[in-house]
């Protein structure tokens, strides 16, 4: 197919002017637009807010420079507490409720390997000899709904593993633009979802490779991906893995066309998810733009069952009021491999 042919086909496809105008109108009527307008009106009230802000700044500066013992830390604590109580109803509470479920993808990632399927499997469909330190990263996606305009950073610790979501995601990735293929260790214990400009560097606890994890948050801030590292030699069945890889497309995920062995697919996925989400302790720490920090610990065990293409994940929390039963569809599996 020629590029020109495609362009000619798509050129006439445009939104109607009616749709465009209607959309702009809806945007202008959006509550957030009204809020912005209010703010700008307030800013036009003259010098009073500026003088007030200057007075506050001078007071704070005075306190900082000539503070009595402990006053500085006290004021920060007070500010944090006020802010959290103000914001937490809307934002922090949603952090504590996982509203999604593992979804979409199970990633198998082999260190020391990169390339197409044939580079990982030999001609008989067997896994080639992998380096001793080869491992798999299994990933699952959760919706956490932790985004908010007041949220600066979210840190999630999962079973001693840690990952963080810096506020400026893209800048973190600028240095890695030329390494966009897959996951890799940017430095010891750190994994980066390369090339995904909305995802960011995550720290990883190498002290506990099996239970440690890393993850990232998606562009809208309402999802978290995490990974659990497995030593495939110890924690997985090599034959199962080979079969699984031979069944799957390396990069595109399961499209269904090779899924003759559904029992195998189901077994592998159930085993992995069940292992991944057994006795999980998740700590979520939210840093707000003004420096306030809120922290919450969530413990849970997930029981996973896979029913054909339908994945039913029952999340049982071991702390009260945390999870609900959810059902997923669109279950896919993606295999990725990479040489660091």
């Amino acid at each position: 197919m020629l590029k020109e042919e495609y362009k000619e086909l798509m050129d006439p496809i445009s939104p109607s002017s009616e749709l465009t105008e209607k959309t702009i109108r809806k945007m202008k009527e959006h509550p957030k637009a009204a809020k912005k307008q209010k703010r700008s009106l307030r800013s036009k009230r003259g010098w009073i807010p500026v003088i007030a802000a200057a007075l506050v700044a001078v007071t704070v500066l005075t306190l900082v420079l000539f503070r009595p013992f402990g006053a500085h830390s006290f004021s920060i604590l007070a500010r944090a507490a006020d802010t959290v109580s103000e914001l937490s109803d809307k934002e922090f509470v949603t952090v504590a409720q996982m509203t999604g479920a593992p979804g979409g993808s199970l990633f198998l990632n082999f260190s020391g390997l990169y390339g197409e399927e044939e580079e990982i499997l030999d001609e008989n469909g067997r896994l080639k000899d992998l380096p001793d330190d080869a491992y798999m990263l299994l990933g699952a996606y959760y919706n956490l709904d932790i985004a908010g305009e007041n949220v600066k950073q979210v840190r999630v610790s999962l079973n001693n593993g840690k990952f963080m979501v810096p506020d400026d995601l893209s800048s973190k990735l600028t240095a890695f633009d030329d390494r966009t293929e897959s996951y890799y260790g940017a430095e010891e214990g750190v994994f980066v979802e390369g090339g995904q400009s909305f995802y960011s560097a995550l720290s990883y606890d190498s002290a506990d490779p099996i239970k440690g994890s890393a993850g990232f948050m998606d562009s809208e801030g309402d999802g978290v991906m995490w990974f659990v590292r497995h030593d495939y030699r110890e924690s997985t069945d090599r034959e199962l893995l080979e079969k699984l890889m031979s069944l799957s497309s390396m990069n595109g995920g399961f499209s269904g066309d090779k899924l003759e062995d559904k029992d195998l697919f189901i077994k592998v996925n159930e085993d992995y998810y069940n292992e991944m989400f057994r006795d999980v302790v998740m700590t979520v720490e939210v840093t707000f733009n003004n420096g306030a920090v809120s922290k919450k610990e969530i413990r849970f065990t997930a029981e996973c069952s896979v029913d054909g293409y339908q994945t039913v994940n029952r999340l049982k929390s071991t702390s009260p009021d945390t999870f609900e039963e959810v059902t997923l569809y669109n279950y896919t599996i993606t295999l990725k491999a990479k040489i660091d």
Binding site: M1, K3, Y6, D177, T180, Q196, S197, K336
Partner: peptide, 25 residues
């Protein structure tokens, strides 16, 4: 790729998949 003239790496970045996956697709 064809209309927006994006490279495989740019597409990978935006869609959150690997460059290899883009090329495969």
């Amino acid at each position: 790729f064809y209309y927006e003239d994006m490279s495989c790496e740019q597409i990978a970045s935006v869609l959150g998949i690997s460059g290899a996956a883009v090329r495969t697709r």
